[in-house]
């Protein structure tokens, strides 16, 4: 088994002490080590925000792009080389706000990437404004009267649109989260893992205490992961009890398996054949 230390990197971590991101980072390293995927075989694509910085803090190949746009970058990379193991780190504002349209398209495509959404229900890097998942009434400096809208339910959204792997983890349950990430990476197709993440600086409602009291793991021996209706019902549970685990799982053909242009292997590995191209052009 690969040692998790293989992913350690000496770049200075820039998160707040006690940030929920540390649990997520450790879960990622463990999931990679468990699968024995060495750092040079991992590509992490990320957006902007504290979550977007994640790939700087472990050894891997990475593309740290724009706010909201990690999913299309990852999609392009996967289309270019569908042998890549691609993890995507985004925040809730990043993925569900700025990048919302890309999430919908990624579900429709069923592109084989593992999407980790660090959902702390607040904008951290810009110092504490409401996010798409902030609860109604959540008070911030920008929303002093409280958030007037309702929170997005990302799991229900993804399940309703036919996403093939929808899960929720919690940064306080590192082992459980690393299992979800491992399962998500093994799943052929889009995997969405929404991760309840504590923000010690700007979210004083959804704290570690809040989650520790409420979070429970779905019982895998009892919970049927391929029951869509049950998954939708479970995705709507939020309050005194908050379920985590795999809500829904159903494998269908992933996007890169469906494309005629990829039948003969990853685009990046194909040879340029000038004679063939010349013939295509002159015959057209």
């Amino acid at each position: 088994m690969t040692d998790v230390k293989a992913y350690d990197c000496d770049y200075e971590n820039k998160w707040c002490p006690g940030c929920g991101n540390f649990g997520i980072l450790n879960a990622m390293k463990k999931a990679l080590a468990d699968q024995e995927i060495p750092p040079d075989r991992v590509l992490i694509v990320s957006g902007i925000g504290q979550a977007g910085k994640t790939p700087h803090f472990l050894k891997c190949n990475y593309f740290h792009g724009l706010h909201g746009r990690a999913v299309p970058v990852a999609t392009g990379a996967k289309l270019a080389n569908h042998d890549l193991n691609i993890l995507v780190n985004m925040g809730d504002g990043d993925c569900y706000g700025e990048g919302g349209n890309h999430l919908l398209a990624a579900i429709r495509r069923n592109i084989d990437i593992t999407l980790l959404v660090h959902n702390n229900m607040v904008y951290g890097l810009t110092k504490g404004q409401a996010s798409p998942t902030s609860a109604h009434g959540f008070v911030t400096k920008a929303q002093p009267q409280g958030v007037a809208g309702e929170a997005l339910n990302p799991l229900a959204l993804a399940i309703s649109q036919g996403a093939g792997f929808v899960a929720r983890g919690y940064n306080g349950k590192m082992e459980h989260l690393s299992r979800l990430i491992r399962e998500g990476m093994r799943h052929k197709g889009l995997s969405l893992i929404d991760i309840l993440q504590v923000c010690v600086s700007f979210n004083h409602v959804n704290t570690a205490g809040f989650y520790n009291e409420r979070v429970y793991e779905l019982d895998e021996s009892e919970y049927p992961v391929d029951d869509w209706h049950r998954a939708m019902d479970t995705a709507r549970i939020w309050g005194d009890r908050i379920p985590i685990g795999i809500f829904y799982k159903k494998e269908t053909e992933s996007y890169t398996d469906r494309l005629a242009g990829l039948k003969d292997g990853p685009l990046v590995n194909r040879q340029f054949d000038p004679a063939r191209v010349a013939a295509l052009i002159s015959d057209s």
């Binding site: 792009g65 970058v73 999609t75 392009g76 990379a77």
Partner: peptide
């Protein structure tokens, strides 16, 4: 962004 991702990947 897809184009950037694909070019990055080679």
């Amino acid at each position: 962004n897809m184009v950037v991702g694909a070019a990055f990947a080679g």
